[in-house]
Each structure stands twice: as structure tokens, then as C-alpha cells.
Amino acid sequence: MRTLIKLIKENIEHRDQMWQLAKTYQKTKYRGSDMGLAWAFVKPVMYIVVFYFAISIGFKSAKGVEGLICPYFVWLSIGMIAFFYMRDMILNGASCFRKYAALVSRAKYPVGTLPTTVCVSYMLLHFGMLAIGIVVSLIFGNMPSIYWIQIPFYMALMFITSFFWSIGTGLISVVYKDFYNFLQVINQAIFWLSAILFDVNGLTPGLQKAFLFNPITYIVEGYRNAFCRHVWFFEEPVKLLCFLIILAIMALIALMMYKKLIKRIPDVL
């Protein structure tokens, strides 16, 4: 608990530094290409379109999702947009300390802000993607509703989850490099294990229970509930509870790692 307070204090105290670094992270990533930052949006949009065609034309299962108040394409896009953020965070969060090795081991910099830096910097992209998602939704005739105000709630959950994820995995992958390679391998599997392309509610009860413990599924479903189903988050308390339990465990592990490792990583990096 004390570690958490210390960490939050550090982040608040150095928020300006963190914010500048987060902005630069995305700004310089596509430097040198004419389209620049647009690439950050073209790629995921392409991804969504390809999957839409593959599934709706190839597998003809587009009508498999029940209870939607909007077209399948919107359902797919919204879910994918939430997923893209978490997919980016799985690997980039895990390399948050390694990417800034020079700042950790050779400069006097508030190291506790580095996980936040990466989370915030991808959050900026997510805002852009979400704007695209809203436009898509409007084009397909899915008008704004009161349920949309849940989005900031799910966004906050997503941010907190990736924050603790980055701290925990970021530190582990510094002291144990193989862990990062392992994450790269399972990154692909996570896409299929998170129910992005198919509807969780259409699965057998046993499988549905298994998905309760996947935080990515919960957030993706949350986005979809807000946009495509009009379900409030408090209407599914069991899911929320399971998510919070997983989050608490993640936070606990992350903070333990932080306490144990933060003074050691400058020696390793």
C-alpha cells in the first residue's frame, strides 16, 4: 500500500515530465515517413476491415452475435479498438523500462513514471481510434445514447489494468529477458483467447465462466455493451467482481515487484 502511494505521488509530482515524454513517444515513432502519425491509424483500420471481410464473407457467421442494436461491423470495430490498446500495451508495457534504459541507469529521472508514460502515450492513440469508432458507429446509424457515458469508466479500468501490467511485466522482463520473448509468443494467442471475433455470450456456460477471468474480454465486452447492446456495467455484477479480483491480484504482484526490484534494475540495464 505504501509503495502504491509512493508511486502515485511520484507520478503526480512529475506529471509534466511524464506528459512530455509520452507525447514524444508517439510523435517520433513515425518520423521520416510522409504520412507520419496517420500510419498509427491506417494499420488498425485495415486490420478491422480485413477481419470483417474474412468473417462475414469467408465464414458467413456475421449474424452469429445476438441482441445487437447495431450492425455487426460496428460491434467488431468497437471491440477491436478496445483490444488494440491492450494489445499494444502487452508488449510495449512490458518493455517500458527497457526502452528507457538510459533514463533508468544513467540519468536522474523519476523512474516510477515510465510505465505511466507508455500507458498515456498509447491512450492518446486510443482516443484517436475511439473517435474513428464513433464515426463508424454514426455512419451505420448507431446514434449516441446515455449508455455511451460508460466508456470513460471502461477506459479508466483499461488504463489501470495496463498500468499495473506495465509495472509488473516491465520489471520482470528487465531481470528476466526470456519473459519478454515469452510474451511475444503468447501475444498472438491472446487475440484468440479474448473473444474479440466471436461473442462470449454465445458460448457454452463452461467456456463463459473461463472468460470471466480474462480482463481483456471484460473490457472489450464493456465497450460493446455500451455501444452495441445498451447494458449498464452494474447489470453484470459477477463479471465486474471477477474482473476486479483479477485486477487486485495483478496490482498486488506489480507492487511487490516494484518494491523488490526498482532499486536493482539500474544495475541490470
Partner: peptide, 19 residues
Amino acid sequence: AGFENEATCRENIYLKANV
């Protein structure tokens, strides 16, 4: 530490100062 090779010299002055 704190420099970004892809960024311009001017941006790097700000980056370094930020660090």
C-alpha cells in the same frame, strides 16, 4: 539519456530539459 535520434535538434533541447 533522454535524446531521441529521430527528433530534431530543437526538439531534443526540449527533451533533454524535460528529462
